[in-house]
Design a protein around this nucleic acid. Structure first.
Lengths: 224, 224
DNA sequence: TCAGTACGTTGAAATATTTAATCAACCGTT
DNA sequence: AACGGTTGATTAAATATTTCAACGTACTGA
């Protein structure tokens, strides 16, 4: 799952990245208004953490832009505790959640998990596709109720495709989702092939159907 | 197990912290209304001790906020003996328990233990996993009914994982749970490895299966 | 239809990361 | 001061990730 952190305090931003990375999220960062706008325009994110007070322009303007582009789902406002008007303005614009500074990273992580569940999984913790289930809380994948031993990248890959079922997902999108930073340019997708092969092998060996189809020249599609 | 003490009398707060610390609880403190609100908003606790009469605002308002956030489980009201209306208001709002001042710390501790048992272990005093049992009252761990000599951190670690069985628990979460202060960023998790090794060694030496599996890149999982 | 080419799959090797184990320093208690 | 428990640093081991090269397969245009 991919998160954009728009926050000018570099120390805070850095510790968020570290913590969230350990929680299996991949993070992008933006440190001012312009960079924030640029990232939201060029990439897709599962969750956006948005500081209101930013150099170069108010975060509320970014929020407005997100709203106009129908990308409000998954936005969490973070802002100084006393800015009540920021909170009201943010929630009025339709942000999903509001977290006053200072906050504990575990709290942030819990809010992100809730937002993502709401956005992608109708608030549920478990995705079920016939014999295949993905448990978001336990971070496990099972086939016929037997857990499958899966690595983190494989899990990310499966979750990403499954949460976009019936859609063709480009390899660029996959690379950005399961790998580090959107700034990276990928000259080849060999690593995707490798993960895909291992994932498929493990799932089918466990008795699952192969729900992931490759779409020649386009990407991959999870179809139930 | 993590406890939040919202209490303005510093002496009382300090003695509670000391006592509860000896009882293997880790404690956070808040000394007025605002601090209390901030802590409950930004962190998860297994039990919250809430004084009703606080500088800056009534504890009942904190209780209301907890109720609105579905975090009422594990709240114990502490208040002057004669405030019958506080008691009624508190229990009406759904607090778990009520303890009139002055009280014995042992009484407090017993109530906390009861609240935690109710919240986490459906009122049971003992967790049993085949040959392995964890006695919450005695704070002991046994294998085949023979007690195992275990340190406090090891006990915390085992209890935390066991009470989240079949879930992968991140090292972030483990660090926060077993480490005393609420510091939330750790630059390394070596101390977790050390405790983990000692815990596993003691349990297997005592004849227990190794129920704690490491999940590479994700954390640890207790599986029966 | 058929070669030609781009794309996808595979398995193995190389690299990087995470976890384990050991040992030493630290800290609070007694 | 001595002790056990806890934590941090270092090295070793295990595991995951990425790269690479060889091979299949699907599309393209003549």
């Amino acid at each position: 799952m991919k998160i954009l952190i728009i926050e000018d305090e570099t120390e805070l931003s850095k510790s968020m990245v570290t913590y969230l990375h350990r929680e299996s999220y991949t993070c992008d960062t933006a440190f001012d208004f312009d960079e924030g706008m640029q990232k939201i325009e060029s990439f897709e994110y599962d969750c956006i953490l948005l500081d209101i007070s930013l150099p170069g322009g108010s975060g509320l303007k970014i929020l407005k832009a997100l709203k106009d582009n129908n990308k409000l789902d998954g936005v969490i406002i973070i802002s100084a505790k006393d800015s009540v008007e920021d909170k009201i303005a943010g929630l009025n614009l339709g942000a999903d959640d509001y977290l006053p500074k200072p906050f504990h990273l575990s709290e942030l992580s819990a809010r992100i998990a809730a937002v993502i569940r709401r956005k992608w999984f109708q608030g549920s913790n478990v995705l079920v596709y016939n014999e295949l289930t993905i448990d978001l809380l336990a971070k496990t994948v099972s086939v016929n109720n037997k857990p499958v031993d899966i690595t983190r990248k494989e899990y990310d890959l499966l979750l990403y495709l499954a949460s976009n079922k019936n859609r063709v997902i480009s390899k660029n999108a996959i690379a950005e989702n399961i790998s580090g930073d959107s700034a990276d340019l990928y000259d080849n997708f060999d690593f995707i092939y490798a993960h895909m092969k291992n994932l498929k092998r493990k799932l089918t060996a466990a008795g699952s159907d192969d729900y992931i189809k490759s779409v020649y020249g386009m990407g991959y599609k999870f179809t139930i």
